[in-house]
Amino acid sequence: MKRIFLSVIVFIFFGINEVLAQCAMCRATVENNVNNGEAGIAPGLNYGILYLFAAPYLLVMIIAYFWYRQSKKQKRSRSFKDLIANSRNN
């Protein structure tokens, strides 16, 4: 689990330049607004794109975490029941 988490952090750290590049149409819109003297939309657009990019991955990671935690809890419960059953048989 630690290895996966570390891999995700490294991927995010080294991939941040590509993430900040955005799409061509958004870039053209921002450049057009900057040329017209309206620079206020650019940061909001960048953060909106990053939010839309990150939201599905974050949701999948949260679901996977709870699934992993639940399966670990069930496995621990099963092994405890097996331990009790074995102790009664002996």
Rank of each mutant, 00 (worst) to 15 (best):
I9Q: 10
N32P: 12
L83W: 06
I49M: 12
V30H: 01
K75H: 02
A24T: 09
Q74P: 04
N33D: 04
R78A: 04
V8T: 07
M61W: 14
R27Y: 02
I49S: 09
L20H: 05
Y68A: 11
K81R: 07
M61Y: 07
R76A: 14
R69C: 04
K75I: 00
V60A: 14
Y51A: 11
I9S: 12
N36R: 05
S87K: 04
P56E: 01
A54N: 07
L59R: 13
I41L: 00
R3P: 02
A55H: 11
I12D: 01
R88V: 01
F66S: 03
T29A: 04
L59M: 03
T29H: 09
L6V: 06
I41C: 01
Q70L: 11
F80R: 11
N36A: 00
A64S: 02
N36S: 13
Q74M: 07
G44D: 02
I16F: 12
D82R: 14
G15K: 13
S87I: 04
F14Q: 10
K75W: 03
V30E: 07
F80V: 14
A39Q: 01
R78H: 05
F11P: 10
G40I: 00
Y65D: 08
Y65F: 02
M25C: 13
D82T: 05
Q70T: 10
L45H: 08
K75V: 05
N35Y: 08
M25H: 14
I12C: 14
A55M: 06
L83P: 12
R69F: 01
S7Q: 12
G48V: 01
L58Q: 06
G15L: 06
W67T: 14
V19P: 05
L45I: 00
N33C: 07
Y68C: 09
K73P: 09
P43S: 00
N17P: 07
I63K: 14
Q74T: 10
K72A: 15
W67Q: 15
N36H: 01
S87D: 11
R76H: 06
K73L: 03
S79T: 08
A21S: 05
V30G: 07
G40Y: 07
V34S: 11
F11Y: 13
L20R: 10
E38F: 00
N46Y: 07
W67Y: 09
I16N: 08
R3E: 04
A42E: 04
G48H: 07
K72M: 07
A85M: 08
P56T: 06
